[in-house]
Structures are given as C-alpha cells and as structure tokens.
Computed example of a mutant assay.
Amino acid sequence: MFTGIVTDVGEIATAEGSQGTLKRLRIHASYDPAGIALGASIACGGPCLTVVAVGPREGGCWFDVDAAAETLERTTVGDWKAGTKINLERSLKIGDELGGHIVTGHVDGIATIVAKEAITAGDDPWGPTARFVLKAPQALAQFIAEKGSVCLDGTSLTVNSVNDDMFSVLIIPHTLSVTTWGERQVGDKLNLEVDLMARYAARLADARRGE
C-alpha cells in the first residue's frame, strides 16, 4: 500500500526485454540500498513493482524491477527508456503518516494531458502553480469525482473539476519541483489509478442492480 506522496524521482538507467512479454528495468534512486530488501514493493511512476535486484551507487542505489505483460498493456511502462524520470514511493509501514490517500499501485488505465495553464507567474515568491486538464478513458470516468482523489503517475491529487471524461487537477509549486510534474506537457500520457473507495462502491452498486 502507498499514499501517493512521492519520496524520490528516479531515472531509468536501462530497459531490457520486448513489449508485451516481460521488461526488466534498472532504476537509479537516492534511497539507501541497505533499506531495500529483495521482494520489496516500490511504486514506480504509479505501478507497484517488485525489487528483484539492488545495489549501491554514488548518491544512492540502483534497483531492478520486472514489468509483466499486464503492466505493459495497462500502463506507460512499455514506453520507458534510459533517461525517463519517474516518481518513486516506498511502501507504507505500520505507523507511517497517511499524507495522501490510500493507493494500491494497481493502475487502472492511462490519462492524457489535453491542456496546461499557468496559474501564477514564474516570479511568484512561492514559485509557479499550474492547472492540468486530463482526459480519462471513458470506462474510468465514472470513478472520478469533483473534490475526490486520483493517483496520477504515483502522485496523490485532488480533482478540481469534472466534465464527462475530462477532469482537472491543480499542481502547487512544491509538487512541481519535487516530482515529474514540472516536466509534464500537453500530450503526455500518465498512469491513472482511481480512488479505491469509488471503485468498490461502483462494484457494490452494480451487484445490487443485478439482484
């Protein structure tokens, strides 16, 4: 389980394997390698991936993860290559602060940025703020609610507005500076995980209608 609070921005060092089968990724991060066990779960750009190898490097560590066919089909992982920056989050421990919302790392689909608007000027004392408008897959639109939560590329965000399959989020200066959001542009595709409670509430409603 995760919170959607990004703790590091990693970089893809190598990507091996073929699209649609299995892809092995080596990721450079600033984490202490001594604190990462084989089999640990790390949210990498949204998807929860399992560490299969780990070692030290200057400034932190490297770790390897495998992305299987389901992950490659439903997420942007298949497009990652050397140099791609990704948001990282270690899995929760009992007693950790739940600063975002409950995130599973199970990506539901891919959202696309259709508009980006600067809210504050670059000379603002707190830095720039930006509003992004995104298009969700039609099948997932019902799970996105105004003032509800979504996880985009591993980042916990509050939905500002919803219009059919379009929704907007506001990114504050801090988030722009410590995640990959500062580099996001119109046309970029992001891993989308809808709110866990919304998903189960909709499933329960479907079951009751079936009865």
Rank of each mutant, 00 (worst) to 15 (best):
L157R: 00
W80I: 00
G45K: 09
M166F: 14
G17A: 00
T3F: 12
T180W: 01
E73H: 11
H106Q: 08
T84M: 09
A121Q: 15
T129Q: 14
W181H: 02
S156H: 00
G109N: 03
G60T: 02
K85G: 06
S177P: 02
M1E: 12
A145E: 08
E146G: 08
A130R: 14
N87R: 06
G109S: 09
S41C: 08
C48F: 02
H174I: 14
F143T: 07
P125A: 05
A13C: 05
R208S: 09
G154H: 07
P47H: 00
V169N: 09
A111V: 11
E97C: 06
R199G: 07
L134W: 03
D8T: 02
M197Y: 11
D79K: 09
A202N: 13
N163H: 11
A69Q: 14
T71E: 06
V51I: 10
G187V: 14
D165E: 13
G46S: 04
A202Y: 14
Q19G: 03
T112N: 05
H28C: 10
E16T: 11
D123P: 12
V159W: 04
H101W: 10
D66P: 02
F167Y: 12
L49G: 00
T71M: 06
I102W: 14
M166D: 02
L38T: 10
A43R: 07
A136T: 00
S18N: 13
C61V: 04
G127F: 07
G46C: 02
E16H: 06
A68D: 14
G109T: 10
E11S: 13
D79T: 15
V114S: 09
N160E: 12
N87H: 07
T14A: 12
N163G: 05
S161P: 01
T120I: 06
I110C: 08
P33Y: 07
A202H: 15
F132M: 05
R26H: 05
E58V: 06
V107M: 00
V114C: 07
A141Y: 03
I171T: 10
A37E: 13
E11G: 04
I36S: 04
Y31A: 00
A145H: 10
Y31K: 00
D108K: 04
A29L: 01
I113N: 07
I110K: 13
S161Y: 07
T7Q: 15
R208L: 15
G35N: 14
T75G: 07
D96R: 10
D64I: 04
H28N: 12
C151Y: 02
G46D: 02
H106R: 03
K147D: 06
S156F: 01
F143D: 09
T76N: 11
Q185D: 11
I5P: 02
T155E: 09
I27R: 01
K93E: 13
K85N: 06
S41P: 09
V6E: 00
S91C: 14
P56T: 08
I144M: 08
A141L: 11
T14Q: 12
D195N: 09
G45W: 03
W62C: 03
K189A: 13
T7N: 08
C61S: 15
N191E: 10
Q185R: 14
V186H: 02
A205F: 08
Y200T: 07
K116G: 08
Q138A: 15
